[in-house]
Amino acid sequence: MSTQPVTSEYMLLFRGMHWDKNLSPEEIQNVMSRWIAWFDRLTQEGKAKAGQPLTEKGKIISGKKGQKVVDGPFAESKESIAGYILLQAATLDEAVKIAKECPGLDYGISVEVRLVDQQIGRGFAVSV
């Protein structure tokens, strides 16, 4: 139906495996509770479709026919992806706006916003 607004899927990638090591237990609980509330709200609004954490364990496969396999895909843990949320948003601006609400931003986490698109070549990335 054409009354349905056109939305696209966006991926929020959370970069940074290592949270600020000096966070106190109280702060950890606090930022986590806020994150859960944030994710929950997005889910209820129908904006968050899925979300998963990613562990540090993994392998990089590269080269022709994948003959090169390297342990630990992450060159630098600061860069590594700690998890993702799949968003349903009207515009990139809206997705970025949501990304900016991420409670981890103040504690060493950065968020990358990517358009998930069938048409190769139209995707682009924005970091907040």
Binding site: M17, W19, K21, L23, P25, I28, V31, M32, W35, I36, F39, D40, G51, Q52, P53, A82, G83, I85, G104
Partner: peptide
């Protein structure tokens, strides 16, 4: 103990408490 708390922070946001 600190590491255990951080692990919680890395996973609970996605799955809930």
């Amino acid at each position: 103990v600190q590491e255990a708390l951080i692990r919680a922070l890395q996973t609970w946001p996605y799955y809930g408490v």
